[in-house]
Design a binder for these strands. Sequence first.
DNA 1: GCCTGAGTTCGATGAATGTCAAACTTCGAT
DNA 2: ATCGAAGTTTGACATTCATCGAACTCAGGC
Lengths: 106, 106
Amino acid sequence: MDDRIPPHPSLQDVTLQQVLEALVDPVRRGIVTRLWDSDTDIKCGGFDLTVSKSTATHHFNVLREAGLIRQNYVGTARMNTLRRDELEEAFPGLLEAIVTADRRET
Amino acid sequence: MDDRIPPHPSLQDVTLQQVLEALVDPVRRGIVTRLWDSDTDIKCGGFDLTVSKSTATHHFNVLREAGLIRQNYVGTARMNTLRRDELEEAFPGLLEAIVTADRRET
DNA sequence: GCCTGAGTTCGATGAATGTCAAACTTCGAT
DNA sequence: ATCGAAGTTTGACATTCATCGAACTCAGGC
């Protein structure tokens, strides 16, 4: 097992507060929107982020802890997956509404 | 005209960022959820807020500036209306998703 | 073995933001 | 005319949070 990744929360334990706090940041919202659109895994370095590496790490941590993404290592690359179906079940319509509005704005 | 109320923004000028910043606060989200459920105007004092009057004023200002509520005076009472239909057009599905999740959590 | 690339950890810093109390304004009722 | 209820304004304060650079870890290839 790869113990380099901290545990992922169950979506049952994630609160709306956490999800909104995660998505209120434009950088994190950009990551989620990009994952939603590509619908395939993207490694941390694969995003065109406007922030430093340490800040990016922080953002990915927040997203993982809020149950929005799932991470796993492939070599030295950390891959990110959107927990789309689980989120739809836990917060129906939320992600789609935000992604739709975000896309129309950027 | 009643010039006691600052102008309301057009929903065209409101960004998703503003809306999410407004709704990320639990007190403000509670106000919006309450308005959504009652579907009638409620005066500022009509909410059972856990904060002081000055803080409440601040929260109502944020909600108005984010285009979420409309305010008008009736006597000395400041009435609040949810801009439900306008919001649905500008941010389809967003408010309903958040209110639904919020209700299930509180 | 050694270097490179990918990402993390660790403070530190600066900017927002939620909060309150106190003084003030304003309308309506007595 | 006065009083009270409703809400605002104005600082002030504490906390949170995004951000960065520098040093570190760790796997894989030369």
